[in-house]
Amino acid sequence: MTSRALILQCLQCALVFAGAPLLAGWVEQCRAWFGNRHGAGPLQPYRVLRKLWRKELVVAHAASWVFRTAPYLLVAAMIIAGSIVPLLAPIVPLAPAADAIALVGVFAFARMVSALAAMDIGTGFGSMGARREMLIGFLAEPALLMVLFTPALISHSTSLAVIVRQLTTTRLFLYPSMAFAASAYVMVLLAENARIPVDNPDTHLELTMIHGALHLEYAGRHLALMEWAGAIKLATYMAIGIALFLPWGMSATGSASGIALATGLLAVKMTAAGTALAAIETLLAKLRLFRVPEFLGTAFMVAVLGILVHFLLGT
């Protein structure tokens, strides 16, 4: 492990941790623009986090240690996930520590922690939100695994770093199976990050909430950490999507100029992905909860089709 790789890893961790709220703010800003509103600017999540951080911490009487430790565990899991994904160069030292399947496991762990914490207090909305979250997770996870298998079959490895290296070094090639996998991935991303066709991120009506109901009992810096973890999760999902489907421009060796170029390109890709996400959210309406299995079933079907087409066409 060279010192350069170590520096790169630290840089990536810092980038994911500090930059994630900016991405979330940008998505919100785009949604405001598409909805003919002014919006609060892409820096708004930082202001919200500062405000929440200063507020007094209020914890319910019935809360156990599960409730108290959940925000820290969530943020830790998300930072681990964010540092495994190749962001600027496929040489980060932590990348061989976990492959794509272990990454899905990290997300599943985070989901379990947040669901347990929501049920810990014992209020109706919290446990309802937890159950819905588990329902969506149970439907989205197979689809996500199937999506990851297509690039893994093409590059003969489930390690994200190897996949990125394979896709960036070989000549540009039209993979029909990758087009399928990419569209299924977008659907999984929408479901896992509680975006619009599945869940409304800024609803105030508890009965329609899924993700929001998990945070309902939190206040102060706990809430700030939960929001932060959500932003990092969105950024990590986008980073996985970029690494799998648009990896061009990443620095293969990790030289200083390559990293600078990769950072600039990453900013451009993230901005474009955030704008696209806001456009999808503006154009679609929220689905009824009982239509969500249909939505995620379609994602699963498209991902499996990608694998089948890969076997048939042999490309």
Partner: peptide, 8 residues
């Protein structure tokens, strides 16, 4: 490649 993509 284009034929394959269209078939998919």
């Amino acid at each position: 490649q284009i034929t394959n993509l269209l078939a998919a």
